[in-house]
Amino acid sequence: MSEGPAILEVTDLTVRYPTFTLGPVSFVLRGGETVALLGANAAGKTTLLRAVTGRLRDRQGRILLAGREPREAPPAWRARVGFAAEKPQADGALRVREWFAFLADCYPTWDTAYQRDLTARLGLDAGERIGALSRGTAVKAAYVAAESYRPDLLVLDEPTNGLDPVVRLEFLQMLGNCFAAAPERALLFSSHLLEDVESLCDRALLLREGQMVRELPGSELTEARASGRLTALVADVLRSAP
């Protein structure tokens, strides 16, 4: 585990829905870490990600982002977290570049040169309308929007979902490079693809039916990866009865 400063501290986070409860969940993300969130469908991954990014406000427990509870922090604090959902959260009538221009004026730390670089590297056509984007292109646009202001914590919900193999590889390398060179930042992402976990993350959190059932530390991950047992290990944990 990284010894960097704590970027995200989650303590006893609980979210209750009529038919589902997430938590209580606790974990810490430190600067320089890339952490994967694994779990079956409807395990609560997206709920957890939405909660830590401040999108889900009806919750219990404590979330500290760079030392402050997002619900109580001033609006400018929100620039410390970036979230890329599967689809851009923007009106479909906007073109991608218009959306980026809007965000550039709202986020003080937005780096237009960096955004252009990411756009070019991902082969994103900024002239397309958001509503007309294919699944993979929508993921790319959402990622560029969340990363271009270099938040302390970048949260990605199934980032490689819908990407073709070539772009996926490029994307994973790009993410790896970004975070290897940024000890003051952390990446939290959900995925169903263990190859992504293998290639990118230092640690994995396993979620089953709303409960954090296992944490795979870097050493165990490396060992399982080396012995080719990672898939079996994760499947065993996610399958076993609570």
């Binding site: 990014t53 401040g54 999108r55 609006p75 400018a76 604090w77 929100r78 620039a79 977290v81 979230f83 959260q89 923007a90 009106d91 709202c106 986020y107 003080p108």
Partner: peptide, 12 residues
């Protein structure tokens, strides 16, 4: 759910 994006903008 697009209004969520406005909720988390770093402005009041």
């Amino acid at each position: 759910g697009h209004l969520e994006a406005d909720q988390v903008l770093p402005v009041s």
